[in-house]
Design a protein around this nucleic acid. Structure first.
Lengths: 144, 144
DNA sequence: GTGCGTGCAAAGTCTTTGCAAACCG
DNA sequence: CGGTTTGCAAAGACTTTGCACGCAC
């Protein structure tokens, strides 16, 4: 996703500001995919120390609202944010907390499985599905 | 699950106290299955107003550690707790926040699906899987 | 120019911690 | 009786909010 994609998505609803572009780039340019607010702040502050936390939070809310960012709530009090390009799920290491992405191939099948349970479908209209896998990453397996 | 089950599970590792039994009962006796700490405190305070929040938090941590309670982190800053009798997943209403249980019939299949992806398995040893469905409950569908 | 967006600091919400007293085994 | 556990209040971590100023459109 590029900055001009961002502008297109945001505009109309919100103004495109310097800060929003900076936050977007901080998340978009890094291979490290899941960011806490602190992570983002650190990256942003390297070049732009004047930007405040509140701006990060407010920007993330907007990005979530327009659908370019997804928020993860893991077994942890702090939220993680990621740019949501394509559907995927997450594996969380119970030992070190590492988060690994799993590309989506399960959702469709799971959703169908749920739909087969007629009464669930009648009561609840499902629009999305998130799967979290818990286990141990390669590194932590080696240590044990 | 009964109080004597609880005693068996807890003893050895921890003492069985009046407060722990009260917290357990508050969660076990109610049809309302997902509790915030505030929910639990309200129920507990009906008969035992002297019990403090810290006790609830510490008790829940122990219950989680021994495996009788599961913590849910939803799209929301506050944690939910539930007595985990049998494996199940959750549907969350994006409109009103209602949480509905979905009995498990998906996990096995999902885990197998993941295991088929050899490289994932090699890197990560999966021990559990939680599925969250997001959508709209019957009530909120009607309102719209 | 107007109103949305920002930075700062203060306030808010949920959770954890320190400590003396109380309690379980 | 000795080490856990509790209740209280204070501290901590993360997030939100109020307000005056600044900037995008």
């Amino acid at each position: 996703m590029t900055v001009s994609d961002l502008k297109q998505i945001i505009n109309g609803k919100y103004k495109m500001t310097r800060q929003r572009e900076i936050v977007f780039n901080s998340m978009n340019n890094k291979p490290h995919l899941h960011f806490t607010v602190e992570d983002i702040l650190d990256i942003v502050h390297e070049a732009h120390p004047e930007i405040g936390v509140a701006t990060i939070y407010r920007t993330l809310q907007i990005f979530i609202q327009v659908g370019i960012v997804q928020r993860l709530d893991l077994l942890n009090r702090r939220a993680y944010y990621e740019i949501s390009e394509q559907k995927h799920h997450h594996m969380i290491c119970l030992s070190c907390g590492a988060i690994v992405e799993v590309t989506d191939e399960a959702t469709e099948e799971v959703l169908n499985m749920v739909k087969r349970k007629k009464q669930v479908l009648n009561d609840f209209r499902v629009v999305d599905c998130q799967i979290y896998f818990y286990g141990y990453c390669k590194n932590c397996q080696a240590i044990r």
